[in-house]
Design a protein around this nucleic acid. Sequence first.
RNA 1: GGACGUUUAGCUCAGUUGGUUAGAGCGUUCGAUUCACAUUCGAAAGGUCGGAGGUUCGAACCCUCCAACGUCCACCA
Length: 1067
Amino acid sequence: MDMKDLPKAYDAAAVEADIFKKWEDSGAFDPDGLEKLDPRYKKAEPYCIVLPPPNRTGTLHLGHAKMLAIEDLLIRFHRMLGKKTYWVPGTDHAALATQVKVEQILIKEGYKDPRKELGREKFLERVREFAQQSRDTIVNQCKAMGSSMDWKREKYTLDDERNRAVNTVFKMMYEDGLIERGYRVVNWDPTFQTTLSDDEVDHKDTQAELVTFTYDKDFPIPISTTRPETKFGDTGVAVHPDDKRYKKFVGKTLTANFCGKQITLKVIADEAVDPEFGTGALGVTPAHSMIDAELAERHGLPMVQVIDTDGKMMSEAGSDFAGLTVKEARKKIVETLEANGCLIKKETVPQSLLIAQRGESPVEQLPMRQWFVRVNKKFKLRQDTLDHWKKGDEATLKELMSYAVKSKQTKILPDNFEKIYFHWIDNLRDWCISRQIWFGHQIPVWYKRPLAPLELTFVTHGSTQDNINETYSGDPDLPLAEQGKQEAVKQGELLVGQNFDLVITSDLQRAVETAELTFTGRKIPFVQDVRLREIDLGGATTKDRRLEDHVAEPFQGGESCRDVEKRMVSFLSEIAGKYPGKKIAIMAHRAPQLALEVLVKGKSWNEALTSDWRQQKPKAWQAGWKYVLNDIKLVASDTPGEGWTRDPDTLDTWFSSGLWTFSTLGWPDEKEWKKNRGYHPTAVLETGYDILFFWVARMVLMSTYVLGEIPFKDVYLHGLVRDEKGRKMSKSIGNVLDPLELIPKYGTDAVRLSLVMGTSPGMDQKLSEEKIKDYRNFTNKLWNISRFILTTTQPGNDTESEVLPKTLADNWILRQLDDVLFQAKARLMIYQFSQAGEMLRDFTWGDLADWYLEVAKVEKGKDEILRLILKTILKAWHPFMPFLTEHIWDLAGFGGRLIIAEWPPAVSYDKKNFRSFETIRSLITDIRRVRAEQSVEPAAFIKVAMVADEEKQKLIGENIAIVKQLARLEEVEFVSEVANSWPVIVSGTVTIGLNLASSVLQKARAALATAFSMEIDQLKPYIKSTEAKLKNKEFASKAPEKVVNDMKNKLDEAKAKLKALEERMKA
RNA sequence: GGACGUUUAGCUCAGUUGGUUAGAGCGUUCGAUUCACAUUCGAAAGGUCGGAGGUUCGAACCCUCCAACGUCCACCA
């Protein structure tokens, strides 16, 4: 292309798609592709960022655009630094959010209850279809933003590999006792019919009616509530321990007839009660308030549920109320209380209502059986963790999360968010992870339910010689010792009166013998089962046969505890089908019994091992341990086969997101994970501060737990993008700026700049179209700078080697360039993108375009240096403006792809006299100012005469062409003294006189006199205060030398200037 | 109720560990324009750094208190 044909303005829309394709085809987005492009990436340090996967709920907004701009900047910068950069692309299924969205769409299509009408599979198909469309949109938008990630490596939080990671972690946590199924009060969303975690519930300030009443006419303690309808579930009344009014009731159990229902209430004293509020007494509703549930747990109060999952009153509320909605019931209760004369007063109070984060529906707190991650539970670490704990040490998940940040292994930027993070952890409750929605990772738990529960009685075998000696002779099948036989008989005596339908024994000698002796004389069928055998110790010798060490790891050549567990699952599921409702005695060994504790009681192996009765001294001998087999629960990463029903619930979406840093790198697949191991911990996690808790904290939890290492070294939290008035962008206000509309209008680079510049981490950003326009102007400026250089210079050989400065201006611009490269790099390393960009802009616009290019129009022979500067700034700007810079790079024919060019090295210049050009610059500036200040016609600026010392005369004389061009002068002459009739200003130590047209002379003199006196008025107090300061002994002794010297120099300059001005005034 | 921010020019914001007379962009005013760029260039005006105390030779910066605004967490039943 002929350079002359370059359009006057940069047309982003016309070139961007093309450039993106070139990048994509080049393989530069692929960390392994980099090696093929440039050998320097072969042994390169890895640099990895995982893309916070956008939700597949629709399209990307400006917040995403900001995220992409910052992360792409980081990736491109580090790629140019020579790192093997891997930006992991992917999307999030966003379980609930996506399902809700699709439900809304289906309702619009005419379905009334889409899930019921379609059924699980068909409904999920629609959700998947929507998610797929959304994914396609997201990918295209990311590409439009210029994001340099390789979509061939795309991951999805709900794909098969991620599912494997989820199931594996679930199983690990379950085995460690960190996941449990419990009956607890949870947040329930009656609209979407699912539980929500504490973090998914918001508080909305509303007005509510606070009702003060007594449960019935005779009840001695009045209470207040805004939720009278829950009072059917009250099981206690709590007062403050010091409250004299109620002291006499504490500890008593009272009854009342509350609106037709008989309730029993225990009066308890608890510090948590505020004696000042209401009546000072609090009706405790353990089933419908987490706070009350905690209170109830402390005081042993029972839980009575009265509201169902539809938000309606249950039969527990009495026939008058059952079936009513919460609202209806509330109204009716107040009326009933009033009619019964129990109502004391009604008042309006502010209340914060629990609402679901999506939508406005109120959230109920209900007791339910759900799955929880226990954050305060001690567990044994599976590996060395965070360079602080050793494998086998005990810790809680909270401690891991806390230590990762406390030890600064993960640093949060800005650091005040660390405090917020710790505060959140301190108040963290167990995390409810099961959801009753369909879209998501189904919980990897299977059940087999017998038609009727089996009653199992575990009986243990009598001692063998090894048991007595507490040794291991190596023979796994010893007969009973004499002592053991006696024990077996004794056991039989203790079991008299208990009836069994069947005895199943292990087939080992000691078990069979014991069974015969224990159940002698009873006519019960015996069955032997090989699956009930003791754990196979393999080649273990006495020293290494601690079961604790072999929970997952098998004994050498033998079994692990988990292997026994597997046998027992098979055993139990068989007898569950064969003998429903029967009473069965199980005669077996230690490991099988512990497996029962695990499988039937839901303990973890470590819990089962530590609570094992055999550990107690003296051993608590008893005749049989009872287990009721309601269902057999199997936690597995794969479906266990016929006859098993999978838990229908799905997991909280953040469970899978929490694994994102390593599940995307191949874990738990050994081969893949090994390949990508170097990328973890990832370099930085860049995201909005609004998901610090949801996501960032949970990734720390998962990574420290699963891998024992942090998920990322730095966390960079960007602020939210708001409209120009500081409001959140929302469709209802209509202030949404859509990246897809902005990009074609202003160019991607301008949009990216506007999202990066003028922002700092953690601070919200106000964005207007005006700002984007300003950055569009800048992209155009860079375009025209390039256009000028490319049209006025010849390519030459464009070497990377040094270009020697020929003139003062050359030396000055190279020095400025060198400085800005150093500064910008330093800022980028510490995530100060805005400052880095500002420095580059000041150089590009202020130094290069406004000065050096002007100089270049006068001084010729700058082809080489101009092209070097262009090449250098294109590199430096590339992370900020990838499209424009790559495009110009192509046009200039610099060769190769800018995207993998090396970050520019230092530029050499003459360090001694780089300041000389500053003198000329300030002279020109002064002339320009005088002209403007005095409102002098340009035509009057014909001549400038100046008084200067010889050195300065020489300097200016050598650069006279520049001075003339930039100050728009016709002539400059040096004189010994400037004529009195000429207006004069002082520039540094140069005195300039202006030869003005006579018509403006008078005006100019007057203006000049005012200007002089103003300047003198400014200088005098400055000189005075500075002199005083310098004379101050304390200042002189305490201030650093550099400060003092700088002040002295500046003072001398000011004095000289003042002297000259005063002389001029006199004249 | 608790915590964390923010408050600097008309607007949007910088201001690195306290150190010369506090900066930028936009806007405003004045001026320029055959030149790479009117998406341009030059210049100016505009700030007792939210308020009040304190520490220091020296404070926009550190400490205390207050005010306004914002955000997060808790939930007083």
